[in-house]
Amino acid sequence: MIIHRILMLMMIVFFATLSSCYIYGPETENKRASDYFNKKSYEGGSVLCVPVLKAKKRNTIIEGIAIKDDYTPFKFENVFLFDANGTKVSETTTTAKGVFKFMDYIENGDYLIKTESSRWSGEIHIKVDGYHLDKITLDVKPNKE
């Protein structure tokens, strides 16, 4: 009788586990094909059983340097990241060496990095297709008066 109840309980747990399994695939694009094989995709297609969990979305890092036309760093100034629609996605501030770094959830696509002050401005178009873009040089020129 006790064995019967234990078996019945095990069957209930087994079917509850099966019915709660959730199969999901990528909800967003993978960055590069190599990222998918390195398990670096935003969401991985898999089968999960109790508890149902989803992978955390991963931040993209975009870093570079802002240099004025006299080859000096563009220090302590705001730098903005805009998507293809002109919507501001992120912002950061340059360091004493002119280095900037964006670290946010950023989908693949075309973006504009832009900076502007009362005397200087600069912009560069970039294409995001990975989790880490670096060596970007933002040329900053004097504003025309």
Rank of each mutant, 00 (worst) to 15 (best):
I126T: 04
E91F: 03
K54H: 15
K68M: 00
K141Q: 05
S34T: 10
E123Y: 11
D139F: 03
R119A: 10
K39T: 05
S34P: 05
T92G: 01
E77K: 09
A55K: 14
N78Y: 15
A96L: 05
E123S: 15
F76Q: 11
I136P: 00
I124M: 08
L81T: 03
F100N: 00
F74M: 03
D129F: 07
K31T: 10
I3K: 10
M10D: 09
A84S: 14
S41K: 04
M10R: 05
Y22G: 10
K57W: 11
E116W: 10
T92W: 02
G130M: 03
T94W: 00
T87D: 14
P142T: 06
Y36T: 07
H125N: 15
I3L: 09
M8Q: 10
P73L: 06
H4D: 10
T72S: 02
N85M: 13
V128N: 06
V128G: 04
H132V: 04
H125S: 14
K39C: 09
N85R: 12
K75P: 04
N78I: 13
P26E: 12
I61E: 00
K135C: 10
L7V: 03
N78P: 12
H125A: 14
I65Q: 02
T93Q: 14
T115D: 03
A55D: 15
K88G: 04
K54A: 13
I113H: 00
G86V: 04
S117Q: 07
V79K: 04
P51Y: 13
M11V: 04
K88R: 09
F14K: 07
H125L: 15
T93E: 09
F82K: 06
R58A: 09
F37V: 07
G25L: 14
T137I: 14
R119D: 08
F80C: 09
M10S: 04
R5Y: 11
Y24F: 11
K57M: 11
D83I: 03
L81H: 03
I6V: 09
V13R: 06
M1E: 11
I126F: 06
D139G: 01
P51D: 08
V89M: 05
E27Y: 08
I12L: 08
L18F: 04
D134T: 12
L81F: 04
A33Y: 13
L7E: 05
L53W: 15
R5P: 02
K114T: 02
T95Q: 02
F76D: 14
T95R: 02
S34K: 08
V50K: 10
A33K: 08
T95M: 00
Y42D: 07
L138D: 01
S118T: 07
R119W: 03
K101M: 00
S118A: 05
L53C: 15
W120P: 00
P142Q: 07
E43N: 09
L138W: 01
H125I: 11
A66M: 05
C21R: 06
E63W: 05
E27H: 13
S41A: 14
P51N: 12
V140Q: 01
K101P: 02
F15S: 12
V99Q: 07
K97Q: 14
